[in-house]
Design a protein around this nucleic acid. Structure first.
Length: 421
RNA sequence: GUGAGUGUAGCCCAGAGGCCUAAGGCGUCAGGUUGUGGCCCUGAAGAUCGAGGGUUCAAAUCCCUCCACUCACCCCA
């Protein structure tokens, strides 16, 4: 085969579409209920937007971005995440002068140059929400609640909501210092990766997957115990509101998030079962991000979810997915004159809003019926010599095999009265 | 970037040195008398056995290289 979809990308085939439509529809419904408006941004942005916001030292920036110069030597990157572009649009369009918070959502494809594996692709899709311009802990709780109810509405079971606070730029440095000191005393017992993390990304030490590091991480100083008064009050309030909303969360002091811009509230939604991907969605507060990319200081919080991972979980749990609605009637014909009439009737039916599939290729009626059966149409309209005489079709109900004669002039109105799909 | 596993028709797969002129199932197409689907029956099309090289009288089967896919690590949705 000469051409294949690039590594880590995938075609979403017709038989897969029902999952995607289902998820989109649930996402749209949650956004309506919570008051989020859609904002679509370009697939590529100035690369600097991401290096600045995500963090110069993160893997996403250092080795996973699809980055390129265009013909005018602009350094561009395919978006490796969804939050920074939304924030850029917020700043660019002066949304800071609107009533705050501004609540936006996106459904977008995301690109990261990684080795693909289950639930991880070079192009994947995210549904995400951002509530920009509000520091009230009540909105943290609302965002978390929305994410949670989105997953609940999908019909997924056994999900876990993990919550933590990682402080702000005032209190985090001191905590990180404590953490580093703690880890130094165990440095000889750490896995090789963790030795690197000590220098590169101290917080990440906490969620190491190696069993040998679990005990050390479990006993490590907890960020929630080292918050400044403001952050502590905030975290306390978030938990209070979440309890009020009836959201079953679990505080996890080992929950950290990968991107540099997070502050205070962070959360993650974890699917049940084994597997590499430990998260189907997550988010947090990013109070410094908008200022970092050139806006005024603007407290914000949001979350993102991976559509492919949701599909994986829907399949794993065999969640029933409604089929996408199909066609209503298949037109079969016998002979040239009948074919002419079939073409004419198909046009009339479609103009009348009836989903119509027309047979092609002058194949035998048996072959046409087989095709009709496979097409999922509930009805087949057959035209042959007899029907031409009476200006009618033989309308067969595939489920029951019953047939009736319907005049051409009455076809559309008959179908309209049949309560299709 | 690292490690392991797998590559045979559109899909699932049998075959593990000669009996392979590569089997079966699904799907596709055609037929089972003259205008009718689903079940059943019959038949047909469809495979340079991932690519290249090597060993051998003989390779889908053994060896090497490459490529791709899958899973895991790193990281993340």
């Amino acid at each position: 085969m000469q051409y294949k979809a690039p590594r880590g990308t995938a075609d979403i085939l017709p038989e897969e579409q029902k999952y995607w439509r289902y998820i989109e529809q649930k996402a749209l419904e949650q956004c309506r209920r919570y008051g989020y408006q859609r904002l679509d941004t370009p697939v590529f942005e100035d690369a600097g937007l991401f290096t600045r916001s995500i963090g110069e030292g993160t893997d996403i920036v250092t080795k996973e971005m699809y980055i390129f110069d265009d013909r005018s030597d602009n350094r561009l990157a395919l978006r490796p995440e969804g939050t920074a572009p939304i924030c850029r649009a917020y700043v660019e369009h002066g949304m800071g002068s609107l009533t705050q918070p501004v609540k936006l959502f996106y459904l977008a494809n995301i690109f990261r140059y990684e080795r693909p594996q289950a639930g991880r692709y070079r192009e994947h899709h995210q549904f995400g929400c951002e509530a920009i311009g509000e520091s009230d802990p009540a909105i943290d709780a609302e965002v978390v609640t929305m994410a949670w109810s989105f997953f609940a509405s999908l019909g997924l079971n056994g999900l876990m909501l993990k919550l933590n606070s990682i402080g702000c730029k005032a209190c985090r440095p001191a905590y990180l210092e404590r953490l580093r000191e703690y880890y130094i005393s165990y440095s000889d017992r750490l896995c090789p990766d963790c030795k690197v993390r000590m220098e590169k990304n101290t917080l990440r030490l906490l969620d190491c997957k190696q069993p040998s590091c679990h005990g050390i991480a479990e006993a490590a100083p907890r960020s929630a115990d080292h918050l400044c008064k403001e952050c502590n009050d905030h975290f306390t309030a978030v938990r209070k509101y979440l309890n009020l909303a009836g959201v079953p969360f679990e505080v996890s002091h080992r929950l950290v998030r990968g991107l540099d811009y997070y502050t205070r509230t962070v959360f993650e939604i974890q699917p049940p079962g084994e597997g590499a991907q430990t998260s189907v969605g997550g988010g947090g507060r990013y109070d410094g991000l908008i200022e970092e990319i050139g806006g005024k200081p603007t407290p914000s919080i949001g979350f993102g979810t991976g559509i492919e991972r949701i599909v994986l979980n829907l399949k794993a749990q065999s969640v029933p997915i409604p089929p996408v609605s199909g066609q209503d009637v298949f037109i079969a014909y016998r002979g040239d004159d009948a074919k002419t009439e079939a073409v004419r009737l198909a046009a009339i039916l479609r103009s009348g809003g009836i989903g119509t599939i027309l047979a092609f290729g002058d194949r035998s009626l048996k072959a046409q019926m087989r095709q009709a059966d496979g097409s999922g149409c509930a009805y087949v309209a057959i035209i042959g010599d007899d029907e031409l005489q009476t200006k009618s079709v033989t309308l067969r109900t595939m489920g029951t095999g019953e047939q009736q004669s319907v005049l051409w002039d009455n076809l559309v109105s008959v179908f309209k009265s049949l309560q299709l799909h």
